[in-house]
Design a protein around this nucleic acid. Structure first.
Lengths: 89, 89, 89, 89
DNA sequence: GTGGTCTAGACCACT
DNA sequence: GTGGTCTAGACCACC
């Protein structure tokens, strides 16, 4: 799940600013323990993919500065549609 | 190259279980530095597209896209009946 | 890089509470190995300039005059006597 | 505990190659759940301080480059009260 | 035995 | 309610 989330964020399937389900909800949807979800969220927060705020939910991080491998495709764009999904492929 | 590999895995060109060339070999074939290949492999491993096993090279991981809603429940294996506690909900 | 980070924190360019990029991202931006970044972060954490919290990435530490060494110990609340096992350490 | 381990490794109290207690033992000694210990170990492994091998225990990592001079802790001059959190020891 | 990972459930601080 | 964190216990792969 963690890898899937990371990939989805990287390729734009999950756009910046997207609000993720709460750890409790996602755990319920996937049928896993909440701890598993929180661990995944925590790792992705640490990597800069997600932003978590106590009491305010978890969202896909806004800007993450160029990350190595994907130079074009305009991931960092401002408000507009930055490759709203689709990008790679 | 990383994007190409990712795309090939996503659309099935590279089937799950496919063994990839060693980083040395692929680097030679493409004429790039080995570090470039290992970096790409590492990123794809982190994203879940590839599986790198110590003595077994790098293979295409089983597809685990974000859709996969229910995780099978009884993967905990072990002796007795799986789902012995009623499984999540 | 480490010295630059330290200086930026000291002179306020990086305000307390600022979240730093993940080690992966920063490594990518600077074109250095991720280990180099984590080492620098670790050193600055040890010096008190940064705070690395498990799920929350790395942030610029608040300048805290407070000593507050012991975190209260029995916050586990719940039923029985807190600290029933003598509390960690 | 995690911070204590990190500091001990950094200042040489825990020498490279030192074998740490198993997560189960350390949990018992400190009176915390094993999960807490494994989480701390995992974080330090990710930071490069520790090396963990399945079935072989956890040891202090050999070399991490960047020995650096050890900044003596309280050299920030001015505002006083650096080291307010205890400093490396 | 060890580390790695998961479950199920709890309390906390914060919004 | 949310994320953050901890407990207590389990099974796995590996050595």
């Amino acid at each position: 799940m963690e890898a899937a989330l990371r990939a989805a964020i990287r390729d734009g399937t999950l756009a910046a600013g997207t609000r993720l389900p709460s750890s409790r909800d996602l755990a319920g949807q996937l049928g896993v323990a909440r701890g598993t979800v929180t661990a995944a969220y925590a790792q992705l927060v640490a990597e800069g993919y997600l932003t978590a705020k106590r009491g305010s939910g978890t969202t896909v991080a806004a800007v993450r500065g160029l990350s190595r491998t994907r130079p074009r495709c305009g991931r960092r764009g401002g408000g507009g549609s930055t490759c709203d999904r689709g990008c790679p492929r």
